[in-house]
Each structure stands twice: as C-alpha cells, then as structure tokens.
Design a binder for these strands. Structure first.
Lengths: 354, 354
DNA sequence: GTGAAAGCGCTAACAC
DNA sequence: GTGTTAGCGCTTTCAC
C-alpha cells in the first residue's frame, strides 16, 4: 500500500486495463460488464476515491456553490443556509460559506473573487447594493443568484415584499383598534431598512389609513439591544417622571424580530405590558420570536423558502443551460401570536396563522 | 478580449515574458522590480485571477476547511461556524459546511469523503461517536479536529466539561436554597446527553450533596417543544387537579437552553412562576437565553471559543508540520441571570458573570 | 468496446 | 534573475 492516496492510474494498473477504460467503467458510460466489475474491484481494493482537483481542472466544475451574507450569525441567514444546503446537497454540491462584508465595495470584492473559479455559482444576499454591484454581478464569470433586492430582468433573483409585509402588520394593528402606531426600524441605508421604511410610510399614508399618531424611531442596528434603546427613547416619559403614565403609543411595528424583542424588553423596563399597553409586531418569523414570552406576532418573509428557491435557481443555471434570468417572489405572511392579542377578551391566541 | 477567463499563459504572452517569471512575479518571489511591474500591468489589463483548480492540483492544497455538524440550525453550531470562519478567513481559507447526519455511520461516511481531497482539513462535532469513527478519523487523509468528546492523545480535539458544567448549575441552585431539583435532559444516546447525565448523577451523588428530592426526565430531543412536554410531565399535577398546588420541584436543571426555555413555558402553562416557584438553569449560554424573559441562568460552554480553538488547531496542522496531537479544554462557566434570582430580595440580577 | 494521448492551469525543479 | 519543462489527476476526443 502506497503512502499517498491511490489515483486512477493505480486503479488502471491494478485492473490491468487502460486509464480511459478505468474512467469509463467507474462512470458506467460505455464499458462492458466484465470491465466494470474488474475496475470496481481494483478500485475497492485500493480504497480509491476520485480526486476533486483533477476532476475540477478537467471538467471546469467544482460541485460547490457559495453562499454569502454579511452576518452568518443572523437567524434569517442561518435558515437560508440550511435550506440551500438541503437542496443542493442531494445533487452532489457542497456549500461554501462566505462573507459579503458590510459595504458595497466589500461585496463587489466578493463577487470579483469568483474569478478564481472555486465555485460553480454564488448565492448572495447583500445588505447594501448599488449599480456597481449589479454591474459586477452581470459580468461575474459564474452564475449569481441574489436574494433580496430584485434586479429586475437582468439577474436571477429571489425577493420578497418586506414593504408590503410592514403594511400587513400596520393593518393588523389598526384592525385591533390600535391608533397610535410607532415604527422601530434599523439603519435606513441598508436594503432591508430602506424597503421597510418605505412600507411603513406607504401604509400610513394610505387614504384609508386613520390613526391619531404615527412616528418612526431608527435603531443603530438590527439587534435586540439597539431595539431596546430605540424603544426606550420612543416609549419613555418625555420628562423625568417616576410614575408610569399612558404611553405615547399603543402599538409598535418593529423592522425585525430582534428589534421587536428589544422593544418588548424596553416596555418591560418601563412597566408597560405587552400586548396590554403596547402591541408589538416583528418581522422574519424567527424561532426566537416563536418561543419568546409573549410569543411574537411576526411577518414571515419565508427565509427557508427563499433559500430553497435561490438554490433551485442556482441548480437550474449550473446543471441546465442558460435560460432567461429568472425572478421568484415569496409573499409576506402575517403570523399572529400573543404579542398582539386583543386586550379585552380572555381568549389567548398562540401560534396561529393568518 | 477572449470570451473565457485569462490564464497565466495569457498574462505571460501579454507581458512578453516566460510563464515561470510570470508566476514568480505575481507571488513576489525572486523577480526583478521591472519584471514585477510588467507582469502586474499585464495581469491587470487582462483582469487575470489565478485559477483555484490548477493551483490546487499542483500544490495539493485547496485552501478550504470543512466544518461538519448534525444540525447547522442549532445556535451553538452557528456560533462555532462564525468563529471558525473568523479565524481561518484572514489566512485565506474558505469554510465548507457539511452535515454529519444523525448516526455514527453517516459520520463515518463523511470522514471517508475527505478522500476526495476537496478540503485541507475537517473540523467535526459529532452527535454520536464510537470506535469505528475514531478509527476512521485516525486514518483520514487530511487533518481532523474533533469538537466534543476528547479522543485522548490520538486525535486533535477541543473539549469542554459539560458534566462539570451541570455540577455548577446544581451547586448554584443548592446555594440558593433550592432542595427539590429535577434534571431535564435530551436523548441519552448522544454524546452531550450522556455526558450531562453523568454530570447530574455525579453532582447529586456527592457526599456533600443534600436535597429532599431528585429526578431526571428525558426529553425526546434537545428542543423547546420537547422540553416543554418533558417539563409538563415533571411539574404537572400527578392526578387531575384543577388548582395549582405546590410543585414537586423548586428547581430544574435543563441540559441546554432550548430545553430550559421549554421548561419555563411549561411552568407558565401550569401557572408556576420562574424563578419564584421554580428556578431554571440552561446550558450553552445562547443569545436566545440572554434575551428571554426571564433571562436565563446558563452554563456557558464557550461555543465561540471552542470554534476558535478548533480553527487554530486546524491552521497549525495545515500550515505547520505534524505536531503531536493536541487537546484543548474550555472550562464551563456559570452565567447567573433572572431565571434563578433569589426569591425574596428585591434586587434583580441580570446578565451577571460568576 | 477499448487504448493512446492530449491538455485543463498552475508551480517548482532545473538549467542557464 | 530568467526561461524551459515536467507533471499534479482527471476526462475526453480520436483511432482502432
């Protein structure tokens, strides 16, 4: 037994046949039964497994796809990753995790790095986008699927309508009789931040919209602690009062679940009950929100579905030819739970689907 | 401009120098200043980027490491992944995410697949282990670092002492005056399940240990819903009673944060307060537990630290020579929070470190 | 159905 | 300091 791994040549010699026949036999393409048997046996004896690099160099195919996001710790991206892995893995593809970085230029660099050809395709969900990025994606040497902003017509993409999703949340609160509605958003210069702000502004500007008071508070980040701070500013007493008074808002729409949980914690800090004093909605429908107490009413953006859709688009591109750029849209869905339960009735809503 | 990507040969021709000089110039090894300039310019004009497959085939180096776990959705593994990525990425390595599957044999298959040489090393945290797996890891053609069970002396590994961690939790509850202590564990045939059970049994068998009542309830899985069901069995009235009575236990040690949150939800279902009626501890110190209400006292097993340590071990192996198998241990640390706050005093502990 | 041989893109001897 | 050349392991024409 040699010290290094066995190669195809070793197998060929062992089986006493040519290199070409060995390759064919192992792939089951145009080889006689006896040939296949002989080669299989030799391969098994040698513990042969084909070398990925040699194959890649020859076939120009890595059987790898990259998935890149800014923060792989974010539950939304974790769900996407799991979904992508689940879809491509049975087709023999591996998943390489990469980071887009926070900025457009770092994302451009990432796309540019595809030039080394270490993956067959890239699925990317950029936090920030721009024309340069779109340009770079179009000229990328491998297929790219974007999850997020729909680059209409030019680039494969999977989108959702988070703006409409915010609208769903606002409607829901209005239907519940809430009339003083605040929005806690994350940074406005991000793609999701901008879209969700647009959604809130549109919803509250509709002719049918009626509310006593409306406001937006921008948190420093899409995190629990940033949400908590933002909500303290929003819900706290305007002057230094010790007694808890009627809060300025009876409902808060948060731009994601993490912010929403921060809002609930802040309400708690201020002695306000949720949903009694303040109803709260989140977005992304994470497991975190589902198990939280009170469980969180949240707008699902179908993270797993988007991941699956992106993965399928990628497989289409990579396995099949070069179809027209495709665009898949996943609609937002409101999941009503405890954090917006009606104040009066004794019924307790929990985990329901609208 | 050719339709396909530019190769080193293209750059060499463009610069009017040899292939070897081009390669050297691009790597900055033994090339004159003018040569470097010429080659750099040519490469830039052609938009050249080196092909990963060619380089891998020649150097026998992929600049990739694999990270494999059973469930990439688990927050603990997500933290490890993020940490590993953070460590290896600056050294030019990519991270490939893989699945071990639930069983020993699927994990063996995973290790065996390293034979294709698509990564330079494997970091794996198996849910279930056995001698066959240890054997397979030892004969793997690439370095393997195991996070979890310490295969003493033979295999690079990063471990923690979750058994001792459970001991920390038991001690803490005892010090708080709790005397009827239950343990909610996950499946006992998993590595973590077995270790934590051992920890609980050891802690409650110590000569110094004094409690009125001790019990273990095994949940079907390490999840919130399984924890909730297990805790219902444990804390619920033995017969069909409507009135909430004194619960059979005043403290529950859970084998991880997810189970702990299930326990708290069950307590809530049964009208019991946490920590008033029942104190609850978790394990893994996840963000979920930190933002939960009440925030969760939890034993940190240093997921991120373990990920970092494993990544460094891997880099040592891959970059440097072949040192002795190394073993890194990360000690458990108790993080005391609201879910075990003393019943009487009005002080509210929150997020403190012991 | 089988074998011989070319060549994917790169790096590292080896000569000069 | 620079050029020539071999060869990593594989698939795939191309002849037979």
């Amino acid at each position: 037994m040699t010290s290094s791994r066995a190669t195809l040549i070793d197998v060929a010699q062992r089986a006493g046949v040519s290199l070409a026949s060995t390759s064919r036999a192992l792939h089951g393409t145009g080889a006689s039964k006896t040939m296949v048997e002989r080669v299989r046996a030799a391969a098994a004896e040698l513990g042969y497994s084909p070398d990925a690099a040699g194959r890649t160099l020859r076939m120009k195919k890595t059987f790898q796809v990259a998935f890149a996001v800014a923060d792989i710790g974010n539950p939304v991206y974790v769900e996407m990753l799991a979904a992508i892995h689940e879809v491509v893995s049975p087709h023999g593809y591996r998943v390489v995790v990469m980071s887009t970085g926070d900025t457009v230029s770092s994302t451009v660099d990432l796309v540019r790095s595809m030039g080394s050809g270490f993956v067959d395709g890239l699925i990317v969900s950029p936090l920030r986008t721009g024309d340069e990025l779109a340009h770079e994606i179009r000229r990328a040497p491998v297929p790219v699927v974007v999850i997020g902003r729909p680059f209409a017509g030019e680039i494969d993409s999977v989108s959702t309508d988070s703006a409409a999703g915010i609208g769903l949340a606002v409607e829901h609160l209005l239907a519940l009789g809430r009339r003083r509605i605040a929005f806690v958003n994350g940074p406005l210069d991000t793609t999701p931040g901008a879209a969700r702000q647009r959604g809130f502004d549109t919803a509250t500007a509709a002719p049918t919209f009626s509310a006593e008071r409306v406001a937006t508070e921008v948190a420093d980040d899409f995190t629990v602690s940033a949400g908590r701070e933002a909500a303290r500013r929003l819900l706290g007493p305007s002057s230094a009062q010790a007694e808890p008074t009627r809060p300025p808002f009876d409902a808060v729409v948060a731009a994601n679940d993490l912010l929403a949980i921060g809002v609930i914690r802040a309400a708690d800090d201020l002695g306000l009950s949720v949903p009694g004093d303040v109803a709260v909605t989140g977005m992304d429908d994470t497991e975190l929100g589902q198990v939280f107490k009170p469980s969180l009413t949240s707008v699902s953006l179908g993270s797993a579905e988007r991941g699956r859709a992106a993965a399928r688009l990628m497989l289409d591109r990579v396995e099949a030819g070069d179809p027209q750029p495709q665009h898949v849209a996943i609609g937002p869905r409101l999941q009503v739970r405890e954090s917006t339960a009606p104040a009066q009735p004794s019924t307790r809503d929990q985990g329901g689907t609208r």
